[in-house]
Design a protein around this nucleic acid. Structure first.
Length: 114
DNA sequence: TATTTGACGATTT
DNA sequence: CAAATCGCCAAAT
């Protein structure tokens, strides 16, 4: 194989793989937004970020429960065990909730860059 | 193959 | 202040 341009050519390219990698870097008790991830990857396509997570209910490898939208709101229905489970999980990590489906981004928003 | 849509978000009208 | 539009990509129909 070509030792050299092995960067992330091929499949592992799209935001998909990159999204997973970033999400896995989110420390416990922190949350991030789709937009932050997208920007960290050099794009504004927050939709694809959400899509990536949706297509990969891999809560094992990717703690999707730590990823919320800009309003701090959780996903409409969680792929793990349900939206209630996502909330419970975040609370267990020390994340403060404003209401059943809104986390306090001001306190727990994790940023990759800046 | 082409069109629509989807865990979104910021900016412009 | 609300609605429309742009950004950008892959999967589903």
């Amino acid at each position: 194989m070509n030792h050299e341009l092995r960067v992330k050519s091929k499949k592992t390219n799209s935001l998909f793989g990159q999204v997973y990698k970033l999400v896995q870097q989110i420390p416990s008790g922190k949350v991030t937004t789709y937009g932050e991830i997208a920007l960290a990857l050099g794009t504004r396509d927050a939709r694809k970020v959400g899509w990536a997570l949706h297509q990969n209910p891999d809560g094992n490898t990717t703690p999707c429960h730590r990823v919320v939208n800009r309003a701090g709101k959780l996903a409409p229905n969680f792929a793990f065990d349900g939206s209630q489970e996502q909330r419970r999980r975040l609370e267990a990590e020390g994340v403060t909730f404003i209401d059943d489906r809104h986390v306090d981004l001001k306190k727990h928003l994790h940023r990759f860059i800046k």
